[in-house]
């Protein structure tokens, strides 16, 4: 995901930022989700990081780095008025307990019914899961940010996951550089095309049937 052109990443992050509401408690994953704060009115949401902080600010200047204050990407961050610290067990209790309003997270695949795969690739040693399963299973709303296809053109939105699942039926919205989908009661619905993108292009690059909000009848 890191090799994607900055403009594509920004397009996705900017649109994902509009999924957030003022006052939301928001947990951001690494990669494209980490770009979301640039498109959010400062102070309008509370950032939560699973290593134990709620309400934090931007990356500090090098001479202001506090080595004991990092986010879940191990990046130094800053204290803001209202910041609060807690331990990992409490932090994941917040996530599992449904107290985090939105998680924005990257994915390798999303299925039409909202299953998500974002932690393991077959053939590689499976040695890291981190907080991915906790966030996917626990966040009240799950917004996935990802490029619409793999670099070789294979769709990432599919009927059935072919990669090991992270969680099942949990995705609420998928934001790509081409479109925005929602999963509504287990059905995939296209709700928005990114500027300049056609429905035909999205159909061609999506590996699952979807309904189109503005269409008179559901897609076959």
């Amino acid at each position: 995901m890191t090799s994607v052109r900055p403009s594509v990443r920004s397009v996705i992050a900017e649109r994902a930022a509009r999924e957030l509401r003022a006052g939301d408690v928001v947990n951001l994953g690494i990669g494209i989700p980490a770009l979301v704060p640039a498109f959010v009115t400062p102070g309008s949401v509370f950032l939560h990081s699973e290593n134990g902080v709620l309400g934090f600010g931007d990356t500090p200047a090098p001479d202001a780095v506090d080595p004991n204050l990092v986010n879940a990407g191990k990046q130094p961050v800053t204290e803001v008025p209202g910041s609060v610290y807690f331990d990992s067990a409490a932090s994941f209790g917040m996530i599992r307990g449904g107290h985090v309003d939105v998680a924005v997270i990257g994915a390798l695949q999303v299925s039409a019914r909202g299953d998500i795969a974002n932690w393991a690739v077959p053939g590689k040693a499976v040695l890291g899961v981190g907080g991915a399963m906790d966030l996917c299973a626990g966040a009240r709303r799950l917004v996935v940010t990802m490029t619409h296809t793999e670099k070789d053109g294979r769709p990432k939105i599919v009927e059935e996951l072919s990669l090991p699942a992270t969680a099942f039926g949990v995705v609420d919205a998928v934001v790509t550089e081409l479109a925005v989908f929602r999963v509504v009661e287990g059905r995939l619905v296209l709700v928005e095309l990114q500027p300049g993108v056609t429905l035909a292009e999205v159909r061609e690059k999506t590996g699952a049937a979807f309904e189109w909000r503005d269409a008179p009848t559901p897609e076959a």
Partner: peptide, 15 residues
């Protein structure tokens, strides 16, 4: 040998 747990499960198992 590695035993992998979701991070929140690890924290709660210790708790």
């Amino acid at each position: 040998e590695v035993t992998l747990l979701p991070q929140g499960t690890l924290a709660e198992a210790i708790r």
